[in-house]
Simulated assay, not measured.
Amino acid sequence: MTPNHTAHRSSPATARVAVVTGGSRGIGRAVSGRLARDGLAVVVNYAHDASAAEETVSAITTAGGRAIGVPADVADEDAVAALFDRTEREFGGVDVVVNCAGRLALSPIADLDLEVLDALHRTNIRGAFVTAQQAARRLRAGGSFVGFSTSVVGTRFPAYGAYAASKAAVESLTLILARELRGRDITVNTVAPGPTATDLFFEGKTDQEIDRLAKTPPLERLGTPEDIAQVVAFLAGPAGRWVNGQVLRANGGMV
């Protein structure tokens, strides 16, 4: 079975439906699994790694949930529109959109290759905008949009200039979208994780750097993808309906 193949059980038309971009790995995979456990049908979006998407879909369906994998580059407006079209055909509508897709590039500002900057911002800013645009057009009443930023917007660690700049843009986009959707009963928030134990976080870091970052929060550990998925589930679920237009820094107490 390819991840683009339907893999879900029949469900009532009233079931809630989530689209999770970048949903096949890391935090996105944890979010996909958690929302599925909460009873949502989940569309696991991925860019290139079909095998990771298949693993995520299989884990959900084996546990009795409903999921399909759908490829799309989040910065491609036609591909993202097709992603939402497929979601509506398969499950009848869209209630939750979680934009986990993102890139990370670390470099001092003086040394960063501008082609790397363009690629990072294409995914992190344009991709966030395209996904938010489709969410604004498609989400049903009672729905939620959850974007992803980073706590580095506040901590301002060296070498994170390009990444933090892209995520600061996401925060502004999210807060404005929340106000633009006035009257539609749709919440819009952003989660800003601190250091979280994912492949993306570990890439290119020494053991000493990882240990230092793990000790930065007062809780003195790295976050886990499941920690962040819990926050997303709260914002997307009934308990989070009064939280709107906010950036929630899930980082163990970092400033």
Rank of each mutant, 00 (worst) to 15 (best):
N4L: 08
H5F: 07
H5D: 05
A7Y: 07
P12R: 06
A13N: 09
V19C: 13
V20L: 08
G22P: 03
G23N: 07
A30C: 14
A36M: 07
V42S: 06
V43I: 14
V44T: 06
S51I: 03
T56C: 15
A59C: 05
G65L: 04
V74P: 15
D78M: 05
V80M: 14
A81D: 02
A81V: 00
T87H: 02
R89F: 10
E90P: 12
F91K: 01
V94S: 05
N99R: 06
A101T: 03
R103P: 08
A105E: 06
L106K: 06
A110E: 08
D111V: 10
L112W: 09
L114R: 11
L114S: 11
L117Q: 07
A119L: 12
L120D: 01
H121Q: 14
Q133R: 14
G143L: 08
F145S: 06
S151A: 12
R156Y: 03
P158C: 02
G161N: 01
G161V: 00
Y163C: 12
Y163L: 11
V170K: 05
V170C: 11
E171G: 10
E171V: 11
E171W: 06
I176L: 13
L177G: 10
R179H: 08
E180P: 13
D185P: 10
I186V: 15
V188L: 11
N189F: 14
T190D: 08
G194R: 07
P195L: 05
P195M: 05
T196W: 04
A197D: 15
D199H: 05
L200H: 01
E203N: 09
T206I: 07
D207S: 11
L213C: 13
K215L: 14
P218I: 04
E220A: 12
R221V: 03
R221T: 02
T224L: 03
I228E: 01
A233P: 15
A233G: 11
L235H: 10
A236M: 11
G237Q: 04
P238R: 00
G245T: 01
V247N: 11
R249S: 14
G252I: 07
G253M: 09
M254Q: 10
